[in-house]
């Protein structure tokens, strides 16, 4: 299924990736400017996966995510100004500034949950799939999670349930582990996919740095999920951003300069290897090579996204902190 052919669709995909990237850069700027900005796990380098998923979800589909969630949320269509305000703890934030980065949700765009606890969302996503099936409106549930979730027993319980009850769920694993790097989170399985396979879940692997490949895999998976009402597990292999384990957001690989796609001489420094293959520049190079866009188109698109983010930043900065009285409200419905 849906190979991307139209120029508009391809540029729209790139725009979604750029929005994710520029959003994270705004978070880094805000972190530098303000005393507190929380503990963030930035989505930089994952855009190829998130954009491909979000581009293909329908309005009624349910998404559930994890601590590395910013890209998912804005990629799905949440207002970037309100998302940024949430991260900055402002009243205008998506959750009134209470949840911050780790608990950001936007139910208006079908975002059910973010959980800062490893494995915290996968059970919810499975329940979402159960609801989708029961309600019979053709919607699917998506669980986005990192490879560490497979250490948690709840993921097995969820896979078993999803498989046995044939639930329409996309288990989207963003695997940014390099063998040997993730020292303390360990899986005995030789291949991550052996686990869902053992529970009879259809599995696929895809290069997470190639957004169109992810798009094709996700498209195929979603079609299968909707048609057969079954779960599918996709492992998207991602080359981790060198800054992905930082506690305070910083420009580990610099602010993205889109012209590096055609002016490769600009790529220097200790992380040049990562920059060379990062999903956005890689996609731009592909679009240029296939003449789907000209340099000017790309620059215009980036400008458009940057302008959108500038407005978002203004909104977030202007939004006040919540009133103290609000703190004790909302524990119950």
């Amino acid at each position: 299924m849906p190979e991307i052919v139209s120029r508009e669709a391809r540029l729209s995909l790139l725009e979604r990736m750029l929005l994710m990237r520029r959003f994270e850069e705004a978070v880094i700027h805000a972190a530098a400017k303000h005393k507190y900005i929380g503990r963030n796990h930035l989505y930089i380098g994952h855009e190829g996966t998130g954009a491909a998923v979000m581009a293909q979800l329908k309005p009624g589909d349910l998404a559930h995510t994890t601590h590395r969630n910013h890209g998912h949320i804005v990629g799905r269509g949440a207002d970037p100004g309100r998302a940024l305000a949430e991260i900055m703890g402002r009243e205008g934030g998506l959750c009134g500034g209470r949840g911050g980065t780790w608990h950001m949700t936007d139910t208006s765009v079908g975002f059910q949950s973010t959980s800062a606890m490893v494995g915290g969302s996968i059970g919810l996503a499975t329940g979402g799939g159960f609801a989708c099936k029961q309600l019979g409106q053709g919607n699917v549930s998506v669980a986005l999670f990192g490879d560490g979730v497979l250490d948690e027993g709840i993921s097995y319980e969820a896979f078993n349930f999803a498989s046995q009850y044939s639930l329409p769920i996309l288990f989207m694993c963003e695997n940014n582990e390099k063998p040997g790097r993730r020292e303390t989170s360990m899986l005995a399985a030789d291949r991550l996919l052996d686990i869902p396979k053992a529970l009879k879940i259809h599995t696929m692997t895809v290069d997470g740095g190639d957004v169109e490949a992810v798009h094709a895999a996700v498209g195929e998976a979603l079609a299968r999920i909707r048609k057969d009402q079954v779960p599918v597990f996709i492992e998207s292999q991602i080359e981790a951003w060198p800054g992905s384990h930082q506690h305070k957001p910083e420009f580990t690989t610099g602010e993205t300069d889109i012209s590096m796609a055609w002016d490769t001489g600009k790529i220097t420094g200790p992380h040049a290897d990562w920059i060379r293959q990062e999903p956005i520049l890689r996609y731009v190079r592909k679009l240029l090579a296939e003449k789907a866009a000209a340099q000017a188109d790309i620059e215009a698109l980036d400008k458009k996204v940057q302008a959108k983010m500038a407005k978002a930043r203004d909104f977030a900065e202007a939004s006040p902190f919540p009133q103290a009285e609000g703190a004790i409200l909302g524990a119950f419905a």
Partner: peptide
Amino acid sequence: APNVLIPCNTALEPLI
């Protein structure tokens, strides 16, 4: 602490 969840927020957290 009041019986409420603990917000991730510089303005609200000090009230706990």
